[in-house]
Amino acid sequence: MTTSRNYTDLFLPISAWLTGFDTTELQATGMTATYYATITTKNTASCIDDFFAQAELVLQEGGGDEDKTNSLIASQLFPTSCYNNLAQNIITMWYTGEWAPDVNAAPSLAEAHNISPNAYVQGLMWTAASTHPPGAKQPGYGSWADPPIGPPVDAPLTSISNAR
């Protein structure tokens, strides 16, 4: 069974509201197609149809207003009881690269796998934490002695001196 239509046009915008990363940031991971394919294989077609129908309504009703949209998401998409927990699974996927295992049939710690090797590398939790995934996107020799390059440092350490 396939979904009644392709929802890739909705997948990015609703992912952006769910993750807090804008659509350009999400696209820059190069994972959009893989992740859309993942949700459609991990869920029934009717679940996908229902989720995106609701997501479309939420986006329309929210009209781009942040508080309103967030409140609609909180009540109509986010709860674990909704759509087989799809909203939270989408967030976990973008942030960690893993499709959250079914709580009733979770693999052992050693067996659990990410969606793909690149899904791990593109995990957004590392970006959110001003760092990089361990073992990938290495920042270069000595970089760790300074605050990370990039987003402004909002809590600069003043007058560091080697006390020794």
Partner: peptide, 22 residues
């Protein structure tokens, strides 16, 4: 020149981001 290395890596990752944007 040591500090240039992290900047080179940063540049690389930004280029790879751009190459993912249709």
């Amino acid at each position: 020149l040591m500090k240039a290395v992290p900047l080179m890596y940063d540049l690389k990752y930004k280029a790879l981001d751009l190459l993912n944007l249709p």
